[in-house]
Design a protein around this nucleic acid. Structure first.
Lengths: 236, 236
DNA sequence: TGAGTTATGCGACACAATGTCGTTAAATCA
DNA sequence: TGATTTAACGACATTGTGTCGCATAACTCA
C-alpha cells in the first residue's frame, strides 16, 4: 500500500527523501544562497556533465509537454544516458527541476545584492530598482519561466518559489527596517505579502507574454506592494 | 511514449481532458460560480452519493498522506467502491480535489456577496470586513486547508486557487471602481496583486497553525494590500 | 407499484513507469 | 600510470493506470 510510509531511495540516502515539510525547503534555500560564495568544490567532470545534461533535457522537454507527462525515461533518453543514472543524482524529477531553478534564483539574488551594496540604501529600495532587476531577469529567461509558471501541476515548485522569495524578502526587511515599529504586523507577514503579490504578478505577466516592459511592470509591482491599492485609485 | 499527446479518457469524452491551459481554469470558475444560483439538476442519488464519498475519502486520506502518495485505489478502497467507478466520475484525482474545493469557495463567495448586498458599499470594502469573512472561513475549515495549502506537490490546485481569487477580485474591482483611473495600472494586475498577497498570507497563517485570530489577520491583510508596506512602516 | 434505465461491483487485461541490482566498460583524478 | 569513481546496460519485481464486458443492484419515472 502506498500510504504506509515515505519512499526511501537507498542509492543516496543522504538526500533521497522527497521534500514534504517546510524545514527542508528553508534548509535548501539557506544552503543554496550560501553556496554562491563558496568556492566550487571539486566535482567529477562526468557528474557535472551528467547533471547539466539532465537539467537541460528536462527544461527542453517541458517546452513540449507538461511536467507530469514527462517521465524519467523521457529525460534520460533525451540526455542519451541510462535511466538508472538519473537515480544516482536525483530522487525525483521534481528535485531535478527545483535544483535547476535554484541556481538561477541564486544568481539573481546575488546580482541584486552586490549591486545594492555599491549604492546608498534608501533610494534604491524605494524607487523600484530591484523590482526592475527581477522583471528583467524573468524577461531574459522567458522560455524557462513561461514553462514553469504557466503550467498546472507544478505544485512543489510554486510553494518553493514563493517560499524562496519570502525568505529573501524577510532577510532584507530585517536588514533594512531593523527594529522599526510595524504596528503589530509581523515581519513574516510582510514578507509573505510581498512574495505572494510579486509571484502572482510575475505569473500573470509571463502568462500573457510580457504585455508590458520590465520597467513598467516593476513600477506597477512597486506601487501596488509599497503604496497599496488605495493609493492607485486615490491619486486620480 | 508519453509525450505524444494528451491522454483522452474514452469513458467521458466531454470532460476527460486534463486541464492544462488557462482557458479551462477560467471556464471552470465561471461555470462554478454561476452554478450556485441555478437550481440543482435532478441527478441520480447514487451519483451524488458516490461523488460525496469519493470527495470525503480523498480529504480524509490527505490528512494522513501527501497527495501524490494517494492512489485512486486508495480512494475507492476507503469509499468502499470499485476502482472503475472512480473513472465514471473523474479523470484524475486532481480533478476530484479541485471539484471538492470549488464548492467550498463558491459558498464563501456567495456568502460574502449576499452579505455585502444588504449594506452600503463603501465602508464594508474599506475596513477589511470581507477579508475577515475569508479568514474566518479558512479558520472554520483549518483541517482541510492545512492539508491543501501546507503540502508540497499540490501544483494544479495552487494555480487554480490563485486564479480563482483573482477572478473574483477582478469582478469586484470592476463593479466597485468602475472606470476610475488607475494611473496606467491594469485592473488585472491589481486583482493579481490582491490574489497573490492574500493567498500567500493565508498559506503562512495556515502553516503556522493560525497564530493570530481571523480578525487580526484580516486587518493585517487589509492594511498590507490596500495601504501598502510603506504605510506599515511610516506610521510609527 | 412495476418497467426501464443507469450506476456500480467484479474480475481481468495490457500497459507504462518506477526503483533497484549486479556486472562491465569507460572516464577521471592524483 | 594505476586506483577510483561513474555511467552503461539489461534485467527484474512491483505498482498504478485506464479500459472492458458482464452481472446485479439501485434508482427514476410514469
Amino acid at each position: 500500500m502506498s500510504l504506509n510510509q515515505q519512499h526511501v531511495n537507498k542509492l543516496h540516502p543522504d538526500e533521497s527523501v522527497v521534500n514534504t515539510n517546510l524545514d527542508e525547503v528553508f534548509d535548501m534555500q539557506q544552503v543554496s544562497i550560501n553556496m554562491i560564495k563558496k568556492a566550487t568544490k571539486k566535482v567529477d567532470r562526468r557528474v557535472l556533465r551528467t547533471r547539466k545534461q539532465l537539467s537541460q533535457s528536462l527544461l527542453e522537454l517541458m517546452q513540449q509537454s507538461s511536467f507530469e507527462e514527462i517521465t524519467i525515461k523521457d529525460i534520460t533518453d533525451r540526455a542519451d544516458m541510462n535511466r538508472a543514472t538519473f537515480y544516482l543524482h536525483y530522487g525525483t524529477k521534481e528535485e531535478l527541476l527545483f535544483k535547476s531553478l535554484e541556481s538561477r534564483f541564486d544568481e539573481l539574488v546575488h546580482t541584486i545584492e552586490t549591486q545594492l551594496e555599491t549604492k546608498p540604501d534608501e533610494p534604491i529600495w524605494a524607487d523600484g530598482c530591484y523590482e526592475q532587476m527581477v522583471f528583467e531577469h524573468v524577461a531574459d529567461h522567458v522560455d524557462l519561466y513561461k514553462v514553469v509558471l504557466d503550467q498546472n501541476g507544478m505544485g512543489t515548485i510554486i510553494h518553493q518559489i514563493i517560499d524562496y522569495i519570502a525568505a529573501v524578502t524577510l532577510r532584507h526587511t530585517i536588514d533594512y527596517h531593523d527594529n522599526q515599529d510595524t504596528n503589530g504586523i509581523p515581519l513574516e507577514a510582510i514578507s509573505r505579502h510581498v512574495a505572494g503579490s510579486m509571484f502572482s504578478l510575475i505569473v500573470w505577466w509571463v502568462r500573457n507574454d510580457l504585455p508590458h516592459p520590465p520597467k513598467e511592470m516593476a513600477d506597477i509591482c512597486h506601487r501596488l506592494i509599497n503604496l497599496g491599492c488605495d493609493n492607485v485609485f486615490d491619486t486620480d
